[in-house]
Each structure stands twice: as structure tokens, then as C-alpha cells.
Computed example of a mutant assay.
Amino acid sequence: MSLHSFGLEPLSCHAWNKDRTQIAVSPNNNVVNIYEKKGKDWHKIHELTEHSGRITDGVWKPTLVLVRINRAATCVKWSPLENKFALGSGARLISVCYFEKENDWWLSKHIKKSIRSTVLSLDWHPNNILLAAGSADLHCRIFSTYIKDIEDKPGPTAWGAKMPFGELLLEHKDCGGWVHSVSFSPSGDQLAWVAHNSSLTVADAAQGKEVTQLTTDLLPLLSVLYVNPTDIVAAGHDCCPYLFTYTGPHALECVKKLDIPKQTSKGSLSAMQHFRNLDKKATEEDNNELETLHQNSIMQLCVVSGEKSKVEKYSSVGLDGAMVIWDFKD
């Protein structure tokens, strides 16, 4: 694993380019900074300032998109084939955007069915048609985004066979809190999500859409990522990632913490120096550092190398202004 700092500002989200030589990060405001790796250091090469509000996901370059929303955009996700992208918003809808060559712009179609609050998270099924969405109404849903003008009619999936645009294929109403992040498994037959009640849940279409929920004793998890067919990594307010495994209905467990504790100098202090610190700081703590690489909440996880079927490296960004690249070894 490796730790990289981009300053003191919190990082709310990040996105990699195709060959992972550049990274776009948002320092929790209306700017996107793009860095390029040169040797061991990251150098800022672009600063995108076209946004007027705080950025909650990565955008590369400005182009005309008719999104048609009257509230904040809260999350965005490209489809696997990159011929569509989905945008969640505070307008209680999802805009599915696709390119129209004739007018050289992006059009959008809206999914509104049963969404009652802000859409917080999105993830695409491997078939490029189904879209999972977590929202602040404590629901997790799967919709069809089939657009007949740009793609062939999809075949049946474990989630359902009829897939006109906007078709609701899953609606789980008892998520226990805001659904901060969603992630399809490599096959697309399972969907994992994390909610604000510190839970991780998996819905399994291969088992009749059976839902298995694990409520942890961790602080709320904010991001979740499938790293192979059975392993799931999740992270959030505990400032470090955790490994979970799902092997079937009611077989979901937290395996271990995926972090190496920071080495502190406390163990090497003499008794006299320890008491001097107590006298000087009026506290038993010798420093305020957490024993984790991240020193504040982790906001987002992304794949760096490998595919969802076998992720080799993944990255995290946090409110401490740091980005960490983690090696995954199952």
C-alpha cells in the first residue's frame, strides 16, 4: 500500500484515467484538480472550475448535457460500455444520459418511479442495462435503463426478463438508514450496499432475491466495492477499509480490518518522558494521530488495477486530504 497527500483540504471523491497515470480529485468544493504521476510525486496539470457547487464525483471536461434537474447532482457513474452515464440528484430522480450525434450533445431520460428522496449512490450491472441506486429515503433499488435508440434489446437476467426503460426490478425498503454506496458483484447476480446504520447488505438474485443484512459495530460505512465474486471491501467513518465475505444467503461476515496500524513513538518513550508529556499536555495522549493510514473518514473507494472479478489494487480518498492505494490479497 502507498499513501499520497494532495494538501490539507478534504477529498470528497476521485476518478482515475484509463491507464491510471492521472487522477482527478475534488477538494470538497466546486473545483476538480487533475494530477499526473511523475516519478514518485503527483503534479497538478489541470484545474477545472466550471462547476458552481461542491463536486461529489469526478468529471473530466465540459460538454453540453441536457440533464433537466432543478436540484443538486449528487453522484454520477459511467456505464460499462461508456455509451451512457447515470446522474443521481436531489430532485428525487435519476437522469440517464446518452449521446445524440446529430446535435452533438447529450440527452437524458428520467427515472422517477417510487424515488422519494435524494439519490446518493449508483452502480451499473455488467450488462450495461441495469442500474442500482441507493437513496436517502432508506431504499435500495434496481432499474432498467434500456434505451432502444442506442442499444440492442437486452436478454433476461437473474433480476428479471422484461426491461423497458425505468422498470423497477428490485426495491428493498428496510435498509436501516441512508444508502451511501452500492456495488454489483462481478457476475451482476448480487448487489451489496452500505447504509448509515452501520450495516452491509447483500441482495442475491441467484437465490430468489434473498436479502442478507449484517449490522456491524463499526461507525457508518460510506463506500462499498466488490473485489472478487465473494469478497467485499467497505470503508467509512472508521478511517480504514474492512474485508467482508458473502458466500450465500445468511452467510455474510466481517473478516478483518485491512490496514496496518501506524507506528507510534509511545512505546519507545521513557517513563520520565511520558510523565513530562502528561504534565505539558494535561492528557494521557502523546499525540492526536489515529493508528490508521487515513486520519479521517474515507469517502470513496475505486478500482486501480484488475477487474471486479479479481481486483489487484484499489484506492481510497478521505477527509484528511489523503489518497491511499491498497494492494488486495485474498
Rank of each mutant, 00 (worst) to 15 (best):
S114F: 09
V179E: 03
G177D: 11
V76I: 09
I142L: 09
R92M: 14
P154N: 10
G88N: 05
K162R: 14
S95F: 01
K148F: 02
A86W: 12
E171A: 12
H180V: 01
D123I: 00
D57V: 03
T63E: 14
L130G: 02
W42R: 07
R92T: 13
G155E: 14
S185H: 10
Y98L: 01
G53M: 09
K40E: 15
T74I: 05
K153W: 04
L66G: 10
C140I: 05
I150Q: 02
Y146A: 09
N70D: 15
I147L: 15
K44F: 00
E50L: 11
S114L: 04
P126E: 10
N103T: 13
A158I: 02
S183H: 08
A72F: 08
L120A: 13
E151P: 00
F85N: 07
H125I: 06
I55K: 08
S117R: 14
L64S: 12
N70W: 10
G90I: 05
L81T: 13
D104M: 14
D137P: 08
A133N: 06
C75M: 08
D41S: 08
A133H: 04
G134I: 07
C97H: 04
G39P: 02
N83G: 02
E50I: 02
I94P: 06
A73H: 04
E167H: 03
H51E: 05
H110Y: 00
L138I: 06
L107M: 11
H43S: 11
H110A: 12
G160R: 02
S52T: 13
H46V: 07
N128R: 06
N128V: 00
I142C: 06
H110V: 04
T49N: 14
T145D: 05
A86Y: 05
G155F: 06
N103F: 12
N83A: 03
I115V: 14
K37G: 05
P80D: 06
G39Y: 00
K109C: 09
H46A: 14
G177E: 12
C75L: 01
G134H: 03
G39T: 02
A91S: 15
L169K: 05
K173D: 10
H110M: 13
G90N: 11
A136I: 01
D123W: 07
A161Q: 04
K148N: 12
T56I: 03
P154W: 00
L168H: 02
E171W: 04
S183L: 12
A161I: 03
W106A: 05
L130D: 03
G53R: 15
W124F: 08
I69H: 15
N70V: 12
A73E: 14
L131C: 09
H51W: 12
N103W: 11
I147D: 01
S183T: 11
K38R: 13
K162H: 10
L170E: 09
I55R: 06
F184C: 07
C75G: 09
S185Q: 02
N128H: 10
I45T: 14
K153G: 00
L130Y: 11
E82C: 14
D137G: 03
G176Y: 01
Y98V: 02
